[in-house]
Write a protein that binds this DNA or RNA. Sequence first.
DNA 1: TCGAGCATGTAACAAGTTACATGATTTC
DNA 2: GAAATCATGTAACTTGTTACATGCTCGA
Lengths: 182, 182
Amino acid sequence: MVEIVILGLLMQGKMSGYDIKKVAEQSVGLFIKMSYGSLYPALKRLAGEGDVIEEDTNDAKNRKLYAVTEQGGRRFLAWLGEPLQTNKREHLLKIFFYDHLDEPTRKRNLTNLEQTLQRSIAEMEAVQSVVEKELDQLEDKDDYYYRVSVMHYGLQFFRMEREWLTQIIAKEAFKNESNRRL
Amino acid sequence: MVEIVILGLLMQGKMSGYDIKKVAEQSVGLFIKMSYGSLYPALKRLAGEGDVIEEDTNDAKNRKLYAVTEQGGRRFLAWLGEPLQTNKREHLLKIFFYDHLDEPTRKRNLTNLEQTLQRSIAEMEAVQSVVEKELDQLEDKDDYYYRVSVMHYGLQFFRMEREWLTQIIAKEAFKNESNRRL
DNA sequence: TCGAGCATGTAACAAGTTACATGATTTC
DNA sequence: GAAATCATGTAACTTGTTACATGCTCGA
């Protein structure tokens, strides 16, 4: 995970480890945290495997700059093109970097995720209506109020995610259409 | 985390490790995963510390039943009463178990979280309007489409969470009012 | 009787955090 | 000149997963 974030951020240009952390906080910081204790070892690993090159700037601060190699770029793009899965918010990380991915793969993966989400939502709605009916027959249903609320959260969360996806897919289509006209 | 989930689920009655996993999947499974490799060692730890008691049922399946001790109950309730923080979805886990918490603490923690969220949203809206303006002055703004989309996701996510919170706070107030009338 | 599922457990590994160490530079 | 922040790094620890091992039971 850390390694992929590093590669993704370095796709925009060379940076020091220190800068990578700062940029990460300002961009993907909302859903991914990185500490120096994982960052620096990851940079060493990436350099050892040839995915990035380490460059000593002998400037005043003794910084080291890192840049992706073509091998590293291929590795990153291979990861980026994989199907989107909602596990552990990795899909958000992928979509964050989607400007680097080709349009057809992008569209395919996004609509696939949208459909998967749609199925999950339908399933959850079915489960919830059953639960709701069972609950109505209990006298002590107030005792399950928060458990049920968190179940509702799940549904609202999935719906929000689906709507967001639908929006970005629609806007991308519109964007492409406009650009073709120019 | 695993230990807390176990304690929380056991608050509803004694269960085997195997059952704990099944119940967890059906309830908190959406945002928390547990494997046997973490579950069983956690049960041993909890038993060693006196937070649960292990009871050998010498039934056909050679099951072991676990139940919370009063010490374990205190530990769980202490955790449950802590302020809600959105980190790592721990707040969802807490709220899931909120039926076990007293109403005043519940209300206090929920409204505190609501206010914190409200501040985050205001802050994000400010940041986004600045970013949006800067973006409008670029010719290649399509190259940042997905990065910006994920930023929008953040805002939508926070808003959804706030609205959900507002709803459950309002409904709880209504619930209390109705019960007082009886 | 055979396979699915019940039931418990461990060892090796993975991935990351926390706390510490060190030193230079910039800013007030 | 002191404090903040730039800059890099390591060692110990935490937490969890994966893969394996083992054996029992229940229904088709």
